[in-house]
Simulated scan of single mutants.
Amino acid sequence: MSRGLSAQERALWARVAASVRPLAGRPRPPAALPAIPAPVLPPALGAAPIQTRQPQPPAWPPSRPSPPVLAATLDGGWDRRLSRGAVRPDRVIDLHDHSLAHAHQALAMAVEDASHQGARLLLVITGKGRADRPGRIRGELSHWLEQASIRRHVAALRPASLRHGGSGAFYLVLKRT
C-alpha cells in the first residue's frame, strides 16, 4: 500500500525535477508528478480509526561507539613498555594450529576468564602464516575482538614485541573490572 504525496512533497519534487539536467540524447523528465489518488478502503465494521505513533526518543542518550580495537589509545607509558617488550603478560593463549571455529571459541573463553580474574595483559599467539598461505587466525583476530561479548573486556590490541613472538603474536590489553 502506498500513500500519496503531500503538497509540500510535490512542491519539493517539482523543484528537484526542474534542477535536473538530462543525459545527452534523453528527454527532460516531467516537472511535476501526475496526481495519483490514494486508494479508498471500505471501513471495517466496528474498527477503531488507525492512530499513528510518534517515535519515542531513547530513555538515555546513546553512548558513543568504542573505537576499533586496533585504534584504541593507551597512555604513552603502556605503549612504550609494550613496544619494548618490557611487560610480562598475565596470561598467554596459543591459537596457533587451531581451526578458526575452535580458535574463536578459545579466545572468547580466555578473554572472559582473564577479565573476571583481574588480568590486564593477555598475550595471544596466532602464528605468522606462510607466504603461500597467510595466517587466517591472525587475519580474523581483530574481527573477533569487535564482537560485543569480547569487546566489552578489551581496551586495546597491540602487536607483540620480538621478545614475545613478533608478528605472530599480539598483546591484548584488558579493561579494569
Rank of each mutant, 00 (worst) to 15 (best):
R158K: 11
W144V: 01
R80L: 04
P30Q: 14
S63R: 14
S142W: 09
V173P: 00
L174Y: 06
A48L: 10
H104G: 10
V16Q: 15
R158M: 09
T52R: 09
S99F: 07
G165S: 05
D90N: 04
L45W: 07
A155S: 08
A86F: 05
A32C: 07
V92E: 08
P39C: 05
H116F: 11
M1S: 05
I125W: 02
I125D: 00
D94L: 04
A7P: 14
R151C: 12
R15K: 15
V40W: 08
R138P: 03
M109A: 15
K128E: 11
S142L: 13
L100H: 06
L172M: 08
P37M: 04
Q8N: 10
L174S: 11
R21Y: 04
T73Y: 09
R91E: 14
P62M: 03
R80W: 10
E9W: 08
P43C: 09
A106Q: 02
L121E: 00
L70N: 02
I137M: 06
A103H: 00
H116M: 08
H98M: 11
G85Y: 00
R10Y: 05
S2Q: 10
L145T: 03
A148E: 11
P67L: 03
L23Q: 06
R53N: 07
H143F: 10
S99D: 09
L12S: 15
S83L: 05
R53L: 12
S167T: 12
E112A: 05
P134M: 08
R88D: 02
P65I: 10
P39Y: 06
V173S: 00
P159F: 03
P27W: 11
A86D: 08
L100Q: 09
V124G: 01
D132H: 11
S19M: 15
Q147D: 13
P34S: 13
D75V: 04
R158T: 05
P65F: 10
E9A: 13
R64K: 15
G77T: 13
A131K: 13
S149I: 10
I50R: 15
R120P: 00
R133L: 07
L45E: 12
L41T: 13
E146A: 12
R3S: 05
G85R: 01
P89Y: 07
G139M: 09
R163A: 09
D113G: 06
A38D: 13
D94Q: 01
W78Q: 02
Y171M: 03
D97E: 12
R80P: 06
V124Q: 00
V87D: 10
P22A: 07
A44D: 07
G4S: 13
G139T: 09
R26Q: 11
A31S: 08
L41Y: 10
P39R: 04
A131M: 08
A44N: 07
D132L: 15
V87M: 07
G166D: 10
R26M: 15
M1N: 03
A7R: 12
G25D: 15
S66H: 14
V154W: 01
L70I: 04
R91N: 04
P58M: 06
R138S: 05
L95I: 04
S115W: 05
Q54D: 08
Q105F: 11
A59E: 04
V20Y: 14
Q56E: 11
P49C: 06
Q147T: 15
V111L: 07
A71V: 14
D75H: 07
R10V: 11
A110F: 06
V124Y: 01
P134G: 11
L70M: 04
L33S: 13
